[in-house]
Computed example of a mutant assay.
Amino acid sequence: MTHAHEEEVLARIAKGLVYTESEAAFQAPRRRTEQIFEYNHTPPSETEKRRSLLVAIFGSVGERTVLLPPFHAGFGSNVYIGDDFFGNVNLTFVDDVDIRIGNDVMIAPSVTLTTTGHPVHPLRRADFGRFSEPIVIEDKVWIGSNAVVLPGVRIGYGSVIGAGSVVSRSIPPMTVAVGTPCRVVRPITDEDLTTRTAGH
């Protein structure tokens, strides 16, 4: 594949247009599958080795990162994580394009963040035809167990995504959003500072 053709494919991907497995094959060297496998089989006591693997896998990774194995990623190198991240077991990144995660983000078990979908018509899925749009998770977000975040979604500062939600549209800051499809059910307010405290 010529450099010009690679640029054309990357431009199409950036616009959220359909591209195929064969067209995107030149990106294969950016996949960190061996390092991800190694991380998932590294003993918990080997904290320095785990940290060095995360630095090698991700596009960037902040300080004080907790990511409980196993986790999975299509590339790994398209994921950018801020400081004080907590990712529980079975976190899946479908990172054909960027997934950007801010600071102080918590993700519960078995969450999927997928930047990629497929056309509805089967003829357009030949050669694994697909489209990709970036995901942004802003600071201080909490995502509940078994949630799925779909291509192009931005989850705003401080928001909470309820367990089992399918997030197909962007969620504004400081809200609680739940369901399939995920919808805002209420704002987060100062009253939430007093829940589950002594005497409540």
Results as ranks from 00 to 15, higher is better:
41 H>G: 06
198 A>P: 03
128 F>C: 09
47 T>Y: 05
17 L>C: 06
106 M>P: 03
12 R>N: 03
164 G>F: 05
150 L>A: 08
160 V>Q: 01
11 A>D: 11
46 E>N: 08
62 G>T: 04
3 H>W: 02
73 A>S: 07
39 Y>H: 07
79 V>W: 15
6 E>A: 10
60 S>T: 07
73 A>K: 02
39 Y>P: 04
7 E>C: 06
176 V>Q: 00
113 L>Y: 11
132 S>T: 09
38 E>Q: 07
153 V>T: 11
90 N>D: 13
178 V>A: 03
185 V>N: 08
53 L>Q: 06
121 H>Y: 05
102 G>E: 04
176 V>S: 01
87 G>T: 11
55 V>R: 15
96 D>Y: 12
68 L>W: 03
5 H>I: 06
195 T>G: 02
128 F>Q: 13
146 N>D: 14
76 G>K: 09
89 V>P: 13
1 M>V: 10
62 G>V: 04
187 P>I: 00
29 P>C: 06
68 L>V: 12
85 F>M: 11
101 I>V: 15
103 N>E: 07
188 I>K: 05
195 T>F: 09
91 L>V: 11
78 N>V: 13
22 S>P: 07
13 I>S: 02
12 R>F: 01
4 A>R: 14
145 S>C: 04
170 S>C: 10
43 P>E: 04
56 A>V: 00
93 F>H: 06
73 A>P: 08
46 E>S: 01
135 I>K: 13
183 R>K: 14
31 R>I: 00
72 H>N: 07
13 I>G: 00
9 V>C: 01
109 P>L: 03
65 T>F: 12
52 S>M: 08
56 A>S: 14
163 A>K: 09
98 D>Q: 14
